[in-house]
Simulated scan of single mutants.
Amino acid sequence: MLKNWLLLIGAIVAEVLGTMCLRAAVDQSIFAIGVLIGYVVAFILLGLALGRGIPIGIAYGIWAAAGVALVAVLGAFLFGETLSFTAILGIVTIMAGVFIVQAGQSNPDQAEVLDS
């Protein structure tokens, strides 16, 4: 089980590094190599995590939310981009949403079923 989450964490780190390289490639095109490597590694690790049993709603939600939060914070520190109160509130809201989705997935027998 721990290995599944380590794969997901690795996917998050690789995606964030790829995105940071994407921003850096605007100024120095050599970073385009990091973009390619980062995203390829991220999707491979995400696929492995899914293959080992992490539900896609949970994995993708955590991957996307953590990526958004880390990219925003690193963008502010590394590139001097603005991280406003509204942006921080949005990041917290996204993370809360992922937590709610994960809580609903943890015990599917108790999940509500919507009638169509």
Rank of each mutant, 00 (worst) to 15 (best):
D109E: 13
G80F: 10
L70N: 04
V98F: 12
A72G: 05
L70P: 05
D115L: 15
T93S: 09
G104Y: 08
L74R: 10
A64S: 15
Y60S: 00
A76N: 09
A103Q: 11
I94M: 08
P108R: 08
E112P: 09
A65S: 02
E81N: 13
G104I: 03
I94R: 03
A76I: 00
M95N: 02
E112G: 14
M95E: 03
M95Q: 04
V71T: 07
I100V: 10
G97S: 10
T82D: 14
L78K: 15
D109H: 07
F77L: 11
P108I: 09
A65V: 02
E81V: 11
S106T: 14
N107T: 03
F77W: 08
I91G: 00
V73A: 12
N107P: 05
A96L: 15
I100Q: 01
V73T: 09
A66C: 10
Q110G: 11
L70T: 04
A111L: 07
G75D: 08
T86H: 12
V98M: 13
F99H: 04
I94A: 05
F77R: 10
F99G: 09
V71Q: 01
T93N: 03
L114W: 09
G67L: 02
D109N: 07
V68Q: 07
I91Q: 00
Q102Y: 11
I100T: 06
Q110M: 14
L114A: 13
I100W: 05
F79H: 02
Y60W: 08
I88L: 13
E81D: 15
S84E: 10
A72W: 04
F99N: 02
L74T: 07
L74P: 04
A65Y: 00
G90T: 02
N107E: 11
L114Q: 05
S84N: 09
A66R: 00
L74E: 08
T93Q: 01
E112F: 14
A66S: 06
M95H: 00
V73F: 14
A64R: 09
T82Y: 10
N107H: 08
T86Q: 13
I88D: 04
S84F: 14
Q105S: 02
G80I: 05
A66M: 04
E81F: 13
T82F: 12
Q110H: 14
I100L: 08
V98Y: 09
I88V: 13
T82K: 09
